[in-house]
Design a protein around this nucleic acid. Structure first.
Length: 903
RNA sequence: GGGCAGUUGGCGCAGCGGUAGCGCGUCCGCCUCACACGCGGAAGGUCACAGGUUCAAAUCCUGUACUGCCCACCA
C-alpha cells in the first residue's frame, strides 16, 4: 500500500538522476524538427541559487519542457558566468576571513588560480542545484563564460570592434569604485538617497570683497575647484562674472563664469566647478576650457591639496575641511539635505567620479539596428510595456567603459612592446617581488598590439619583451556574446547554424540594459540576426510585504530549504501560480503549502484510481461515443483545460496554465467526476469509467509535467500499463491535444444545473445542521418539460452528491409542511425537515433570497424597458436578460409563497 | 524632473466591455471505506476617486490621489 501522503524527497532524488543519466535533456541539430532554444541567463559563480533563480529558471523549464512535448527540438543551453567583480569580491572576502590575506598577498597569478579552484567547487554546487530543481538542463554539456571557446568569442568580438574603431582608448571622467578599485560602466552605478548635508561656503573676492557664497555637498573637493559658475540669467551675480574669488583654505584664485547648467533656484545659485570630481562639472569644464585637477586618488585618499589634508581619507577630509572652514568663518550655513549618491552595484560603496584612461566601446552604430528591431516589433517584449524604456535607453546611450582594474575576468587582448611603448607603461613591484605592468597610458605613448596570445615579437622593432594590458573586460562583455558563444561562434558550427537565433530570452527586468540590450546589439552586429525574437521579462520575488529580499533585512527565503521541506514541485508550482508576465511575486513560506497540498491531491486521486484498477487489464483506450452525461461533461472540461493551459504557455502566462490545470484537476475531476464515478465502480460500466479516469488523469499529468515534473513522472510510471504508453518519460510524449469534438456545451449546461441544485440542497443541510449521515428526501419542481426530463434522468447524480434518499421530481408540487425552500434558476427545491427546521433561520434565509430576487427583477426590467438596449444590444444579450428576469420572477413567487407558508 | 506599473472581499492576487472570481485566513458542520496536506457549507466587495465614451464599464478614454519600480548631471 502506498503511503497516504506524497513524500517527494526520494522520488525527486531518483528521478533527477534518471533523467540526467538517460540524457533526456540533450538536444541535437535535427533538421526534421523545428528548434526551440533558450540560453540560460548564466548564474554567477558567487554562491547558492536564490529565489530569483528558482522563478526565472522554472519559467524557462516550463517553456522548454512544454515545447519539447509540442514536438519541437527543445534545447535549454546550460552554463555559468564568471561574474567579474562579484566573484572577485566573494573570493577576496573568503581569503580575508579564512587566511587573513588580501589578493595582493597571493599575487595575480595565484589569485586567479584560486578563483578557478572556486569555480570547480561552486560550479558543481550550482549544477547540483539545477539537478535538484528538476530543470531540464543537460549537465553533461555545460558552458562557462571563461572557458576556452567563450574566450575565443570574446577575442573575436574585441578584434572586430577594434578594427572597426568601435573600441577605443580614452581619458575621461569615469565611475570609480574605491573599494573594488576599478572603473565601472554607467549602468553599474546605482543611485541611492542618502541623508547628507548641504554646506554654504564663502569664497572671498580676490580684491578683498565679500565674494560669493556657494552650496555644496562635497566640501572636500574645493581644492579641485576650477571655477565658480552662475547662470547667465542670474541678476544677482551678473556683475560678478569674470571676477576672481579665492578658494577657502587653499588660497587659490579661480574665475567666476556663466553657464546654463546652473540652476537659479538651487542653493545660492552659485555652483563650484570641480571638473575632476563631478560629471556635470566635467562638462562645464570642457565648455570653458578649465583644468581638471584630481584631489582624490584611486584609493580615496587626498592628493594635490593643502598639506594638512594630504593622504587623508576623503570622508575624514570632508569633516576636517568643514571644521576648518567654520573656524575660518567661511562656513555660512549647514543644512540637512537628501541627495542622490552614486554607489557601486556590487559593494554599495560611494562611487568617486574619477579622471582616468580606460577602454571604451562606441555605441551609436551598434545601437541603431537594435533600436530599429525594437521599434519595428521584430523584437517582442512580454509584457510589451518594456519596449519604450528599452528604445529610450538605447537612444540615450553613452559609450561603454569596458575595462576593469580587477584580476578576475577576460584579460584585455592587447599587448605592448616595452621598448616601443616605454613612456606609456608604468610598472610596480608586487608583494612577490615581480615587476608588474600597472598602468598604461596611450597619451604618453603606449602602442597597442591586439592579439589573443602573446605575439612572437614586436611588429615595429622586433623586440621580444611584450607585456599584456593589465585590465580585464567588463563581465557583461562576455555575457553580451552568450547566445553566440554558446554555439561556438565565431566558428560556423552546425549548432550555430541550427540553434541560432534562439527563440526566447527569459530574464528579470533588472538586467534589461545591462545584458539584454547588449546581446541584441552584439547578435545583430555579428550575424545580422536578432539573438532571440521574444524577451520574456519575469518579475522579482519579493517578501510578502512586497519588500526586496535581502540578507541584511533577514527576509530571504532559501529555495533549497523550501524544497527540502515541501518538495521541489511545490516550490515550483507556488511560483508558477503567481507567474503573471512582468509582475513581481510576493512570496512567503505560506505561499508553498497550497501548492504542496495540490501535489498531494494529485497523488491521492491517482492512488485512488489505481486502487480501483484491480481486475482490469490495460491498456485501456480512451472510450468513444460516450453516452453518460458525466463522461461527456468531464471530457469537455478536460479538453478545454488543456487548451487553456497550452495557450498560457504560448503567451508566456504560466499562471494561466497553472490555474487552469489546478482547477480542472481538483474542482472538476476530483470533486465531481470521481465522486460521481464511485457509484459506477460496481457496475458493468466500470471499465468505461476507469478508462476515462486513467486516460484523463494521464493526460492531465502530461500537461502538468512541465510545471511539476517529479510528482507527475512518478505517478505516470504507475499509470503507464493502463494507458498503453511505451515511452519511459513523460517528456518524450506529446502534449495532450485540444479535441474540438469533445466540446459539449449541452452537457456542461446540464451539469451546471445538477451542480446548482446539489449545492442548494447541501446548503440547506448545512444550514439546519442535518447530520451528515442522515438521509433525507427532497422535492424538485420545474415548469420546463425538458428540464424536468433532465432532472429525472440525472436524479441519481443529485441523490448521490446531496445525499438524498427519496427524490421526487414533478411539474407541480404542493409545498410540504416544515420544509426549507430554495430556488436555482427555474427549479424550486423543497427539503422537508420535520423536527429539524428552525423557522426563524428559514425566514431569514428566505428574506435574503427575496431581496436578491427583487433586486434582480428591478435591474432586468429597467434594462429591458430601455428602447436603446433592445435596439442596440445583440439579440442574444436581450434574450439572456429576459431569461434572467423570468427566473427572478419565479424565485420571487416561490420564496414569497414559502414565506407566507411560514406564518 | 521624466517614464512605466499598480490601486478589486481581512491578506495576497486573477479577470480587462455584458452587473465580480481564486488561494490563504475567518466562522459552522464532518476522521463520509483516495486525500484532515481532506470533505461540505457560510460570512465578507457600491472593483481608489471624479468626469467621459457606450444600450452596457472593474474592464475603454481623460484627469486626480496615493503606492511601487525604472531612468535622469539640481551641486
Amino acid at each position: 500500500m502506498l503511503p497516504k501522503a506524497y513524500e517527494p524527497q526520494e522520488v525527486e532524488k531518483k528521478l533527477a538522476e534518471k533523467w540526467q543519466n538517460a540524457k533526456l535533456f540533450a538536444a541535437k541539430a535535427d533538421k526534421t524538427k523545428k528548434p526551440f532554444v533558450i540560453v540560460i541567463p548564466p548564474p554567477n559563480i558567487t554562491g547558492a541559487l536564490h529565489m530569483g533563480h528558482a522563478l526565472n529558471d522554472t519559467l524557462q523549464d516550463v517553456l522548454i519542457r512544454s515545447h519539447r512535448m509540442f514536438g519541437e527540438e527543445a534545447f535549454w543551453v546550460p552554463g555559468t558566468d564568471h561574474g567579474g567583480i562579484a566573484t572577485q569580491n566573494v573570493i577576496e572576502k573568503k581569503l580575508a576571513k579564512e587566511e587573513h590575506k588580501s589578493r595582493h598577498d597571493l599575487g595575480r597569478e595565484q589569485f586567479v588560480e584560486t578563483v578557478w579552484e572556486w569555480y570547480n567547487e561552486c560550479g558543481n554546487a550550482i549544477f547540483n542545484q539545477f539537478r535538484k530543481m528538476g530543470w531540464s538542463l543537460d549537465l553533461a554539456d555545460i558552458r562557462f563564460t571563461m572557458d576556452e571557446k567563450r574566450a575565443k568569442a570574446v577575442y573575436e568580438c574585441f578584434r572586430q570592434w577594434w578594427e572597426k574603431k568601435y573600441i577605443y582608448r580614452g581619458k575621461r571622467l569615469i565611475n570609480w569604485c574605491v573599494r573594488c578599485s576599478t572603473a565601472l560602466s554607467d549602468i553599474e552605478v546605482e543611485h541611492e538617497q542618502h541623508a547628507g548635508k548641504l554646506w554654504h561656503l564663502r569664497y572671498k573676492g580676490e580684491d578683498g570683497s565679500d565674494g560669493i557664497v556657494i552650496a555644496t555637498t562635497r566640501p572636500e573637493t574645493i581644492y579641485a575647484d576650477a571655477a565658480i559658475a552662475v547662470n547667465p540669467k542670474d541678476e544677482r551675480y551678473k556683475n560678478m562674472v569674470g571676477k576672481k574669488v579665492i578658494i577657502p583654505l587653499a588660497n587659490r584664485a579661480i574665475p567666476i563664469i556663466a553657464d546654463e547648467a546652473v540652476e537659479l533656484e538651487f542653493g545660492t545659485g552659485a555652483l563650484k566647478i570641480t571638473p575632476a570630481h563631478d560629471a556635470t562639472d566635467y562638462e562645464v569644464g570642457q565648455r570653458h576650457n578649465l583644468p581638471a585637477v584630481s584631489v582624490i586618488n584611486d584609493k580615496g585618499k587626498m592628493i594635490n591639496c593643502p598639506e594638512k589634508y594630504l593622504g587623508m581619507d576623503r570622508d575624514l577630509c570632508r569633516k576636517e575641511t568643514v571644521k576648518d572652514l567654520d573656524a575660518a568663518g567661511l562656513l555660512v550655513k549647514e543644512e540637512k539635505y537628501n541627495n542622490a549618491v552614486s554607489t557601486c552595484y556590487r559593494c554599495h560603496n560611494v562611487i568617486e567620479p574619477f579622471m582616468s584612461e580606460q577602454w571604451f566601446v562606441k555605441m551609436d552604430e551598434l545601437a541603431k539596428p537594435a533600436i530599429a528591431a525594437a521599434e519595428s516589433g521584430e523584437l517582442q517584449f512580454h509584457p510589451e510595456s518594456w519596449k519604450t524604456p528599452f528604445v529610450n535607453w538605447l537612444k540615450n546611450l553613452q559609450d561603454w567603459c569596458i575595462s576593469r582594474q580587477i584580476w578576475w575576468g577576460h584579460r584585455i587582448p592587447v599587448w605592448y612592446c616595452r621598448h616601443c611603448s616605454e613612456k606609456g607603461l608604468t610598472f610596480a613591484t608586487d608583494k612577490q617581488g615581480n615587476k608588474q605592468l600597472t598602468k598604461v597610458s596611450f597619451e604618453d605613448g603606449a602602442k597597442p598590439i591586439v592579439s589573443f596570445n602573446k605575439p612572437e615579437k614586436c611588429p615595429v622593432c622586433g623586440g621580444h619583451d611584450l607585456v599584456q594590458d593589465p585590465d580585464v573586460l567588463d563581465t557583461w562583455f562576455s555575457s553580451s556574446l552568450w547566445p553566440l558563444s554558446v554555439f561556438g561562434w565565431p566558428e560556423q558550427t552546425e549548432d550555430l547554424k541550427y540553434f541560432y537565433p534562439t527563440s526566447t530570452l527569459v530574464t528579470g527586468y533588472e538586467i534589461l540594459y545591462l545584458w539584454v540590450a547588449r546581446m541584441v546589439m552584439s547578435g545583430l552586429a555579428f550575424t545580422g540576426k536578432l539573438p532571440f525574437k521574444d524577451v520574456f521579462l519575469n518579475g522579482i520575488v519579493r517578501d510578502k510585504t512586497g519588500a526586496k529580499m535581502s540578507k541584511s533585512k533577514g527576509n530571504v527565503i532559501d529555495p533549497l530549504d523550501m524544497t527540502a521541506k515541501y518538495g521541489t514541485d511545490a516550490v515550483r508550482f507556488s511560483l508558477l501560480m503567481q507567474a503573471v508576465p512582468g509582475k513581481d511575486i510576493p512570496y512567503a513560506e505560506e505561499s508553498i503549502t497550497g501548492a504542496r497540498n495540490f501535489c498531494n491531491k494529485i497523488y491521492n486521486a491517482s492512488r485512488f484510481i489505481l486502487m480501483n484498477m484491480e481486475g482490469i487489464n490495460g491498456p485501456l483506450a480512451m472510450p468513444e461515443n460516450l453516452t453518460e452525461l458525466a463522461d461527456k461533461w468531464i471530457v469537455d472540461r478536460y479538453t478545454n483545460a488543456v487548451k487553456t493551459a497550452r495557450e498560457g504557455v504560448e503567451k508566456y502566462n504560466l499562471a494561466q496554465t497553472a490555474n487552469a490545470l489546478y482547477h480542472f484537476l481538483w474542482g472538476d475531476f476530483c470533486d465531481w467526476y470521481v465522486e460521481l464515478a464511485k457509484q459506477r465502480f460496481q457496475t458493468d460500466e466500470k471499465e468505461t469509467v476507469m478508462a476515462l479516469c486513467v486516460n484523463i488523469l494521464y493526460g492531465t499529468l502530461k500537461a502538468l509535467h512541465p510545471l511539476i515534473p517529479f510528482v507527475t513522472e512518478e505517478i505516470a510510471a504507475s499509470l503507464r500499463p493502463y494507458v498503453g504508453v511505451k515511452e519511459e518519460f513523460l517528456l518524450e510524449q506529446p502534449y495532450p491535444q485540444f479535441n474540438p469534438s469533445w466540446c459539449d456545451k449541452e452537457s456542461v449546461r446540464k451539469m451546471e444545473i445538477i451542480q446548482g441544485v446539489t449545492k442548494e440542497i447541501r446548503t440547506i443541510r448545512s444550514q439546519f445542521n442535518v447530520p451528515p449521515g442522515l438521509k433525507i428526501s427532497a422535492v424538485l419542481t420545474a415548469k420546463n418539460e425538458e428540464e424536468l426530463a433532465d432532472l429525472k434522468e440525472f436524479a441519481g447524480y443529485i441523490k448521490l452528491m446531496a445525499k438524498i434518499e427519496n427524490l421526487t421530481i414533478t411539474a407541480n408540487a404542493d409545498k410540504p409542511k416544515q420544509t426549507a425552500t430554495a430556488v436555482f434558476e427555474n427549479i424550486t427545491v423543497y427539503v422537508p425537515l420535520t423536527g429539524l427546521i428552525d423557522f426563524e433561520k428559514e425566514r431569514k434565509r428566505l428574506e435574503k433570497d427575496l431581496a436578491v430576487a427583487k433586486a434582480n427583477i428591478a435591474s432586468r426590467e429597467a434594462r429591458l424597458s430601455q428602447e436603446s438596449f433592445i435596439k442596440n444590444a445583440p439579440a442574444q444579450q436581450v434574450q439572456k436578460t429576459k431569461d434572467e428576469l423570468a427566473a427572478a420572477k419565479l424565485a420571487l413567487a416561490q420564496v414569497t409563497a414559502s414565506l407566507e407558508d411560514l406564518n
